[in-house]
Simulated scan of single mutants.
Amino acid sequence: MGHLSVDVRASLRLFAFYLANGTIDVELLDGFDYRSTVFHSGSSLEQVFAIYGNVLQVDADGMVLNDGDAQYRVAQWIRACCDPSYRVEPPFEAWETELHL
């Protein structure tokens, strides 16, 4: 089995950096310090990475096609956790939030 491409590894690294810094989709999450919510329990952090990994698309050459979309869907999930009045549009589909073993 091969390794993840350099592009995928870079996307994952930057995603983790933005997540830890509190700078994922600054516009959608402006005013929300989500870090205590996400880092409070392992299951919240697990869900964040599941959504990112499920939504991320990679072409045959291992190049990431939609990093911004994957980060935005994560930001929507985080916002919904921090702000009960926020409605995710479009709603999450089951495959987006599925946790894989």
Rank of each mutant, 00 (worst) to 15 (best):
L28W: 11
H40W: 08
V74H: 07
E96R: 10
S41H: 09
G53R: 09
S43T: 13
A70M: 06
M63I: 03
P91C: 07
V88I: 15
D30A: 14
L19F: 11
G22A: 12
V88M: 15
S41E: 14
N66A: 00
E27G: 08
V58K: 03
V26H: 10
H40M: 08
G42R: 09
G62M: 02
S5W: 03
S41N: 13
V64P: 02
E27C: 08
L65Q: 14
L4Y: 03
F15L: 07
V8S: 04
V38N: 07
R73Y: 12
P90I: 15
D59G: 02
P90Q: 14
A80L: 02
A75M: 04
A16C: 08
W77S: 14
M1R: 09
E93W: 05
P91S: 13
W77C: 08
Q71Y: 00
S5I: 00
D33F: 04
V58H: 01
I24Q: 09
S44W: 05
Y34R: 06
F17L: 12
L45I: 06
D7W: 01
D61N: 06
G53E: 06
Q76R: 08
D33K: 07
V8C: 02
F15C: 07
A50P: 01
D61T: 05
A70D: 06
V64D: 06
D83F: 04
T97H: 13
D7L: 01
P90D: 14
D59M: 00
V64A: 11
E27I: 08
D59A: 00
E89K: 10
R13W: 02
Y18I: 00
T37A: 10
Y72G: 00
G22H: 10
T37W: 02
Q71K: 12
Y34K: 05
F17M: 12
L19M: 12
S85R: 08
A70I: 04
V48A: 14
L101V: 06
S44H: 14
D69S: 08
V38T: 09
D7Q: 07
D30E: 14
R73C: 06
V6K: 10
D25T: 03
L56W: 01
A20R: 14
D67M: 02
G42W: 05
F92C: 11
F39T: 05
L56C: 00
G22E: 13
D69M: 06
A10R: 07
L29G: 11
L45P: 00
Y72S: 13
L65S: 00
Y34S: 09
F39S: 03
C82W: 02
A75D: 09
Y72R: 14
I24H: 05
M1T: 04
E96S: 11
V55S: 04
